[in-house]
Amino acid sequence: MTASSPLPSYVPILVLGAIAAGFAILTILFSHLIGRPRSTPAKSATYECGMPPVGTAHARFPVKFYLVCVIFILFDVDAAFLYPWALVFRELGIFGLIEMALFVCILGGGFAYAWKTGALDW
């Protein structure tokens, strides 16, 4: 039904994006205008259960988060291939199934390595 549509299919998305962003900006602006800023040093200090804050929050954090993000990226790429494959796998038939199964098995090897080295344990 979009083939006959006179409008490119991405235009409504731009419209929605404009509406969403406009809503967010207007809300923040509006509340900024009517809110009453009465700041004190104690209030604008970092919240740390009422104690005076110690050090900066931008200290280093565990490399674990990096590892899980790496594994995510690589499987994200996997998903990026699975989606187009799902569209045409019937035309490809058994050839396509084997092709994808091989792909997934190789990735599975990497996954098993990550599992074994404990990158998935917290």
Partner: peptide
């Protein structure tokens, strides 16, 4: 086909490399 399968090998190599490098 070959490029596609090679991609998976590349990904696994990258995964293994990144895990080995970043672990303490």
């Amino acid at each position: 086909v070959y490029v596609f399968e090679a991609t998976s090998v590349l990904i696994v190599a990258a995964l293994a490399g990144a895990l080995a490098l970043a672990r303490r």
